[in-house]
Structure formats: structure tokens, C-alpha cells
Write a protein that binds this DNA or RNA. Structure first.
Lengths: 133, 133
DNA sequence: CGTTACATTTACGTAAACGTAAGCTTTACT
DNA sequence: AGTAAAGCTTACGTTTACGTAAATGTAACG
């Protein structure tokens, strides 16, 4: 309940984003800063949401997908219908993420193998033919 | 060395992409189909590359990044300088992927937690206030 | 020979996620 | 009061990865 709010610049410095990005997220209804006159003030809730947004982005979620997931945190009193819908989306996402992790695991393994191959190439410095395929 | 080539349509059907996508990849020098008159014919090498492209995409690699990685498979006889450069890129990518996997792991854990929370919400069907934060 | 099917090139269109510049307030200093 | 800093809105620009349409070519079928 600490009524500590951040200006747009403080927010930017704290999270490494630009003002434009924060305004954009507000326009897309991902953040809901309050106003002091016409100036934006970012609340604790906004900070929590931004953290989630940034993490979501690192996984290639679109802002729209992130918005829907964020809504999960704030429906609560809505109909169970709505709830189930959000729940469904999240379930699908989870499945995606798990299969993505599996692919990532095997890709890492393959890339590591490639790197070992690369080391061999650099080491031996010759046998130019029949490198690939 | 089986001289089996695929037309653009066969290629599309085999990999679930559109002709436009294949032509686009050729324009971006990710694929190098040979020509029969003016028609494209995709070789075994193209098919191997396309598989890698599609997998790369699933991890959010840009086509340009993918192109650079693909080149690793085909330098072989180049100078070790070039090799080291590609090697470097791959090393960085690998580091990215590993940290990405860590984040993905924790995100999956959190999402699962959220889903359990969601189940509780649906179950109890009330206590609307103080849902989030 | 006509048409249907598949291919090609060229080129403009599109969605996402901001960047960037212009021009106008508001607030803070000195 | 003057001015510089920070914020605001509006709006056009940018990149990526194709979509989509138009006009044309070519090969096979009946």
C-alpha cells in the first residue's frame, strides 16, 4: 500500500525501456498508469505488469497474447465463463512452452555438436572437402 | 547423391509453407534451388536447409541470423578467420538459448502455479475481491 | 487449338512493435 | 520573467516476414 509511484522516466530507467514503449503499452491496454494532470504516474501494479510483459516478450509472446494472460490476474470477479476462457488460453500456452522447451533442448544439443565439429575444423586446419552434407 | 528434386508445390506440401515463402527465402539467400528453364527445383540440400530454417524460426531467430548459422554448414574450406567468426556467433547463440531455457523453465513453473490458482478460482466460484496483487 | 493448371516476376499491401520528429504544455530553476 | 528539462499528443517512418494481386509464361490434356 506504499503510495509510491514512478514518473515515466524513472520507470524507463528502472526497466530499460523508452517512454514511447510505455505509452505504447498503455495505448494497447497493457498498462494503466494514473494521471497527475496529464502526466503519467506508474503504480506498483504497473511495475508488476511491466515485469511480466518484458518476460513474456523474451519468449516471443505477442503483446496481444501477453495482454490476455495479464487479464488472468484481474478478472477474479468475472463470470466463470470468462475465467475458463483465459484458463484455456493459458493451458494452450503452457503446452506450447513445454514443447518449445523440448525443441530447445534438442537444438542446444545439436548446436553443441556443431560447435565440437567446428573445433575440430579449426584444429586440423585442413581437409577442406566433404565438410558439409 | 539421389538426384531427386522437388517442384515448388511439392516442397510446399512437404513442409507446410507457401510458394511465396520459398521464393522469399531464395531472395534472401537462404535457399538455392536450381532451375529447369525458369522453374525452380529444390534439391536435397535445399530440403535440409529448409528444415533448419523452420526450426530456427520456432526459436525466434531472425532469417538473417538463420542465414549466418546456415553458413556454418557450408564454409568448411574457407579461412579459419571466417570459421572463427561463425563459431563465435554460434557460441553466443548457444549461450542465449541456454539462458532462454532457464527462463522458460521458470516461466513454465510460474504459469503452472497460475493455473492452479485459476483452478481454485473456478472451483470456489466466489470471493471476488482481492483477487490480484 | 483452346483451356486448365501451375509456374514466374514485379510490386504494392500488411501486422507488429516500436522509433522519431514536430509542436505544444507544464514544471523547475535562477 | 526567462529558459531549460521533462512530458504530452499526433502522426508519419521503419523493419521483418511474408500476403496478395496483376500480368505473363509454359506444359499437358482432350
Amino acid at each position: 500500500m506504499t503510495e509510491e509511484t514512478l514518473t515515466i522516466r524513472e520507470m524507463c530507467d528502472a526497466y530499460g525501456v523508452t517512454p514511447r514503449t510505455l505509452r505504447f503499452y498503455e495505448a494497447k491496454e497493457l498498462l494503466f498508469p494514473i494521471r497527475d494532470g496529464q502526466k503519467r504516474l506508474f503504480t506498483k501494479s504497473d511495475r508488476a505488469r511491466l515485469k511480466l510483459i518484458l518476460r513474456g516478450k523474451r519468449f516471443g509472446f505477442s503483446l496481444e497474447e501477453i495482454r490476455q494472460l495479464l487479464d488472468m490476474y484481474h478478472i477474479g470477479d468475472q463470470q466463470a465463463t470468462q475465467m475458463s476462457r483465459a484458463y484455456e488460453i493459458a493451458r494452450e500456452r503452457l503446452a506450447d512452452m513445454i514443447s518449445q522447451r523440448e525443441e530447445l533442448d534438442s537444438a542446444i544439443a545439436e548446436l553443441e555438436e556443431q560447435l565440437r565439429w567446428g573445433e575440430k575444423m579449426i584444429a586440423s586446419l585442413n581437409t577442406p572437402q566433404k565438410a558439409a552434407e
